[in-house]
Amino acid sequence: MFSHLLLATDGSEHSHRAADKAIELASLSTDASIEIIYVVDGNTSKSDVLHYGDSQMASRKREEMLSVFKEKIEQAGIPARVTILHGIPAETIIEYANHHPFDCLIVGSRGRSRVQTMILGSVSHKVIKHVNLPVLMVK
């Protein structure tokens, strides 16, 4: 029943936990697949370009970072695909999830403090509110 899974990740420890749960969920059905989605926003661009030199190097580093997730899923015998998008994280994830035939969206919750959430907002909360499919939030 949950066979086409969308795993939203930011590369953090929390999204690794989300990936583990996605694998568990996918193992329940026979023809499951997982798509890993990563959103590059303005601040990520700024920091990555500063640290890796230019846009091409930054893209390569991101692919390397995401290939860890991909390999982990493939080792569990589940086909995986990586998609990198550009935009505001919450909105881009919502847009992508709502316009593709997924059965479930899996997100990690970063556990920001109250002050940080006040200023930065919570991506996972916003996503849960506006996505038209079942969401698994991994704490």
Partner: peptide
């Protein structure tokens, strides 16, 4: 040029 690279990266264009 730093900013140009950042915009390159944000828009995924060269």
């Amino acid at each position: 040029l730093l900013t140009a690279s950042i915009v390159d990266d944000m828009t995924d264009t060269d």
